[in-house]
Design a protein around this nucleic acid. Structure first.
Lengths: 337, 337
DNA sequence: ATCATAAATCAAACCGGTTTGATTGTCAAA
DNA sequence: TTTGACAATCAAACCGGTTTGATTTATGAT
């Protein structure tokens, strides 16, 4: 089962290798007659160029790298959604999808990949405010797109969540329901851009809506969410609504609340960030802010592919989330406990 | 920022390219003195071989392909666990991890990848009883490992769940609790190996344990699980325990049960297949059969890597699951409804 | 001392493409 | 008629490795 090479095509079409190459790339004019003969040879032989050879010769390998530090312990549906959507998008464009799970500070590994030239470009996840990977790729001159943002985003292409809108929608809804004291359980990871921006958006939103803001940090786990909620209930019993970044955290919070007799949504409303269709238990369909991971993934992929094709693209995009109301929010009631 | 090539190393060490290559691969004897000079040159220059060139020259590209048909709609934590674990394992071995999401019957795309030679070997997921991908890769002579099994597994390497043990543990537990009528909500996908094996294992297990088996097919969704459960409750009210392949299905089933006043675990016990730490709602911690996805992933990855290194390995492995008891099973009670 | 064998190394070919420089042929402008 | 300019094509070099065949030198057996 020998491979069909460009030489075979050239032989059958009665031209030289370079002519075939030029016909394919269109970088030099080729007569219509020859082009047709070549095309015919390609079809009859079933030729498709070897991306490895193409890459080595200075072309594209039709592979993109997806840099997503994964800590297997807490991988939520959201991450999965990102990965699957991006992979599908990339694969459908006839590109190969390479998943790199190295930690964000493991620049060496990334450097290896970048320099080795296995991929044409990168999509980066879990962006830090000051991200070493960004510097690296910029220096190496390799195209890349961020899903998220840095502190300084000059000359960077990114797709990110419009957190201002997200918070605004939450607070609109909650203050419409009469909530005055709203807490946000945010992820305690100051190096990550979105934690900072989310917090800020929360504060500003509260200010605008004239409600009383409260922020509690926690890690991305059920237990941590539970612990934060416990503290919150003790220190600020006046709080009637909670927003969490993550649904695992939300469930931890809910657990503690219910255990202590705080009923949801009767006594306490809760909204979590997430996506449209996570599989949650039926008993408490959670209201969520859908950040549209598949949309973000698709846009990031397309942005990168366009870049690789040399198209100059407007390249800083904010995706507006959608508030999906289910059954974890309700009208605020004066609490009696 | 020019790349360091093997020629640079050869020049600095005062030898020829081929000598460096031989020193690195060990395929021909090289004197200790030269080898040290070469090593020194490599270190001082910071050389690392270009995998693209290596691959083109007939060597390895240090890339493995993970063929996992993903339908973004219902991706559970289990799939994620597999992907993340495999990716980590592969990346840690300094291999690149390529995720291919093409459907299992899209042999053409896989063929492209196989023939194009971007990867050294494959790990296949979602194995069908008669899987076209297996034939393809066997013909092409490319190393691969299955996570799952075919009908005919001669000369194949695989890692799979020991479903007989899994069912046995469930049934042991449930019949100890006095359950006599047990239903299994299985995935309605006859082309997939595990659905058939699971069903068979269930029947055999029931026979051994002297309990009454009942099988209901459903698809992998909340609604489908709910529908199956509804039918089950109507047609066989005597059933007191249910096993589901998938936790989404389990939640659908639970939802219907609770809605109809069938209390869990009081009236009905339920066990789902899954993994150790999915994030579930606190109110009903689900008892699960942990199929150890990370263990399976690791073994599959190692199997493949060893194969690539030419080590002959014993290569058909069954991973024994672990029953994790939480709060969705209880002693059988005569139901009154 | 002699001859086969193995160690150590180099030069060249090869993997399958792309890119560049050179060559020939056409056609319009001068 | 001469002269560019451009279309169309080919041959050769190159990307960065691996592999093979040949050559030289050292080793060991007879």
């Amino acid at each position: 089962m020998k491979r069909v090479t460009i030489a075979d095509v050239a032989a059958q079409a009665g031209v030289s290798k370079s002519t075939v190459s030029h016909a394919l790339s269109g970088k030099r004019p080729i007569s219509i007659a020859t082009r047709e003969r070549i095309q015919h040879a390609i079809d009859s032989l079933g030729y498709s160029p070897n991306p490895v050879a193409q890459r080595l010769a200075g072309g594209r390998s039709k592979t993109i790298g997806y840099v997503f530090p994964l800590y297997t312990n807490h991988i939520a549906g959201l991450e999965m959604k990102f990965i699957a959507s991006t992979a599908n998008e990339i694969n459908q464009a006839d590109y190969a999808f390479m998943l790199l799970t190295h930690p964000a500070d493991d620049v060496d590994s990334l450097h290896q990949f970048a320099v080795r030239g296995l991929v044409d470009g990168f999509i980066l996840m879990q962006i830090r405010l000051d991200d070493p990977r960004v510097d690296l790729l910029q220096q190496a001159g390799i195209p890349f797109v961020l899903v998220g943002r840095c502190a300084d985003n000059r000359d960077l292409s990114y797709v990110d969540v419009n957190l201002v809108s997200a918070m605004d929608q939450c607070l609109d809804h909650l203050s419409d329901l009469g909530h005055q004291h709203i807490a946000y359980l945010h992820q305690d990871a100051p190096e990550l851009g979105f934690t900072q921006r989310a917090q800020q958006a929360f504060f500003e939103g509260c200010e605008q809506h004239g409600v009383d803001p409260l922020v509690y940090p926690c890690r991305l786990s059920f237990d941590s969410g539970a612990a934060a909620m416990a503290t919150l209930l003790e220190q600020h019993p006046e709080v009637t609504a909670v927003i969490t970044w993550n649904n695992t955290v939300a469930w931890g919070a809910i657990d503690v609340a219910e255990t202590r007799g705080v009923h949801i949504p009767g006594d306490l409303s809760i909204i979590s960030f997430g996506h449209s269709n996570f599989t949650y238990p039926a008993r408490l369909p959670l209201s969520v802010v859908d950040i549209h991971p598949e949309e973000m993934a698709a846009q990031a992929a397309q942005l990168l592919l366009q870049k690789l094709d040399g198209e100059p693209v407007e390249s800083q995009r904010l995706i507006k989330p959608t508030l999906i109301l289910r059954q974890s929010t309700a009208v605020s009631a004066v609490k009696s406990r």
